[in-house]
Amino acid sequence: MTAASLELVPPPRKGFFAALAPGGVKVLFALLAVGIAFLFAFPVLWLVLTSLRPPSGVYFVHRGTEFTFHNYAEALAQPNMLRAFFNSFAISTLATVLSLGVTVTSGYMLSRFRGPVPNAWFSVIYVLRCVPYISWVLPLFFVTRQMGIFDTYWGLLLPHVAVHICFFSWIMKGFFDGIDPSMEYAALIDGCTRWGAFFRVALPSAVPGLTALAILCWLYTWNEFLFALMLTSHKTPILTVVMAQFVHELGMEWHLMSATALMALVPALIVTVFGQKYVIRGLRV
């Protein structure tokens, strides 16, 4: 290599810190990463610490050295607790399956068709997406009462599915926009019906996106509070409501709330640890 060609390719520029101390960038980077992780984890760390303190110690979590696992046993022994776990799990799973099933076709329609009907449908979705929860959660209470499904699985499931319809249809449209429709075109020419083209060709290509949405939907429903508070009562206890009720005006049972919250965190953590790579792979909007 000649000197002239070397000049054409300038050496990689060194940053300020790299010049100051070799290896310094790496140390700084590590410090930054640890700092950010600490900030993000702090409220959860605090939850862990609170859940391990005896009831008398929770007001000064940062003082004192007694720690106990008794809170977990006490929380689990609460009436309704196991049912609340089961209900939350069932509602999250069913809501995920139903929401995806309902919106995948709607998103496909939005992505593949042009004309007045898709335009009208998109406008409906767009406007309804903007309407604040508060303006329909309050009446929803009366509506589910009228239908006789208040405080049942259906009374919580169907509103949850309805919440997701607008947002998921929008995202699903994005998924299908990213999939080349020429394969479906070929399938149609080969004598496939429109439904066949959708189920056999388009749907399998959308699986990564669907997986990502399924994971996010499950986490969202597992942690959802406002709907559960408004639309259920003692017949269908839901975990987030049970947790929040430990801390109310009368009794501040911080130790029970934090112990329950941590137990509720475990399924979510498992889903996230195993699911995050699918989410990142699938969420190419």
Binding site: V102, T105, W121, V137, V143, I165
Partner: peptide, 20 residues
């Protein structure tokens, strides 16, 4: 394709909004 979603929206979003 949009029928199930439309039903969900009609009963659990549009109906409550109209009530409100």
């Amino acid at each position: 394709l949009i029928l199930p979603a439309a039903f969900g929206l009609a009963f659990f979003q549009i109906l409550p909004i109209l009530t409100g």
